[in-house]
C-alpha cells in the first residue's frame, strides 16, 4: 500500500472526523493547551520582566535564562513534569503535566525579550520623558511599553511556536493533541495516520508563526516601522 493510499484510507475512516480521536478533538486539545500555557506563562513572568526592564536591571539574568532554556531538552522537561505530576497523583492521560512543561518552556523567551525590549529603549528618550514631567508609571506605559512592544511580541511568537512544537511531544507522555497521530502512527506502523498527523502539526505551527508575525507587525508603533 502506498503512502498516498494509506493517507486516503485514514481520511476515510469515520473516527477521523468524529469522536474522541477525531482531528477536531486533537486540534482543539493541542490549541487550548498551547494558548493556556502561553497566557499563564505571560501572567507569571511579564510583571517581573517589565519591572526589571524599567529599572534597567537583570539583563545578565535574561541572557542566562535563554541559554539555560535552550540547553535543557524540551522532551526532558516534559518527561520530568510528567513523572512529578503522576507521583503527585495526577492521572495518566490528563493534560496537566504537558501544561506545566509548556509553561516552563514558554516563560524564558517572553521574559528575556521583555527585559531586553524595554532596555533597548534609548535612555535619551526616557530621560526627556522624565524631563517633561512624566511620572514613572507614565514613562512605562506611554514610552517604554509601546516602544518595546515589537520585541515583546517577538518573545510571545517564539514562545508560542515552541509550545505548539513541544505539545506534539505530549503524546509521548500519554496525552493527546495532534502528536497522538504521529506517535500512534509510529507505534502501529500506520503510515496514513503518521503523515496526516505530521502535516496537521506542520500547518498549525506555520499558521501560528504567520499569525503572530502579523500581530508583531501590528504591535509596532508607526514611527519605528522600518521604511519600505
Amino acid at each position: 500500500m502506498t503512502t498516498w493510499e494509506s493517507v486516503q484510507e485514514f481520511l476515510s475512516e469515520p473516527t477521523t472526523w468524529s469522536g474522541p480521536d477525531s482531528i477536531w478533538t486533537r486540534l482543539g486539545e493541542h490549541i487550548w493547551v498551547s494558548v493556556a500555557a502561553v497566557i499563564i506563562a505571560g501572567l507569571l513572568v511579564l510583571p517581573l520582566a517589565v519591572w526589571l526592564g524599567h529599572i534597567r536591571r537583570g539583563s545578565a539574568v535574561a541572557t542566562a535564562v535563554v541559554n539555560i532554556g535552550r540547553a535543557v531538552p524540551s522532551f526532558g522537561i516534559l518527561a520530568i513534569a510528567f513523572l512529578v505530576l503522576v507521583q503527585m497523583g495526577a492521572g495518566v492521560g490528563e493534560p496537566w503535566a504537558v501544561l506545566v512543561a509548556l509553561i516552563a518552556l514558554a516563560a524564558p523567551p517572553m521574559f528575556t525579550n521583555t527585559v531586553a525590549g524595554i532596555q533597548a529603549v534609548e535612555p535619551a528618550t526616557i530621560e526627556s520623558a522624565r524631563g517633561m514631567g512624566l511620572t514613572e508609571r507614565e514613562v512605562l506605559t506611554g514610552v517604554e511599553l509601546p516602544l518595546s512592544a515589537p520585541l515583546m511580541m517577538e518573545g510571545v511568537r517564539i514562545a508560542f511556536v515552541q509550545v505548539i512544537a513541544t505539545a506534539t511531544l505530549g503524546a509521548l507522555v500519554a496525552w493527546g493533541g495532534l502528536g497522538r497521530y504521529i506517535v500512534d502512527g509510529f507505534a502501529r506502523q500506520d503510515m496514513g495516520r503518521l503523515i496526516v498527523g505530521a502535516v496537521l502539526v506542520g500547518l498549525l505551527a506555520i499558521a501560528a508563526e504567520l499569525g503572530l508575525s502579523a500581530m508583531q507587525r501590528a504591535a509596532t508603533p508607526h514611527g519605528i516601522r522600518p521604511a519600505r
Binding site: T166, L169, G185, I195, A198, V201
Partner: peptide, 22 residues
C-alpha cells in the same frame, strides 16, 4: 529555512519516513 525551522521535529521526522525511512 524559516519554514523548515517552524515545523516541529516530531512532524518532520514523520514526514521524512516515506522518503528515507526510519
Amino acid at each position: 529555512t524559516g519554514l523548515l525551522y517552524t515545523i516541529p521535529s516530531l512532524a518532520l521526522f514523520a514526514l521524512l519516513v516515506p522518503v528515507v525511512g526510519l
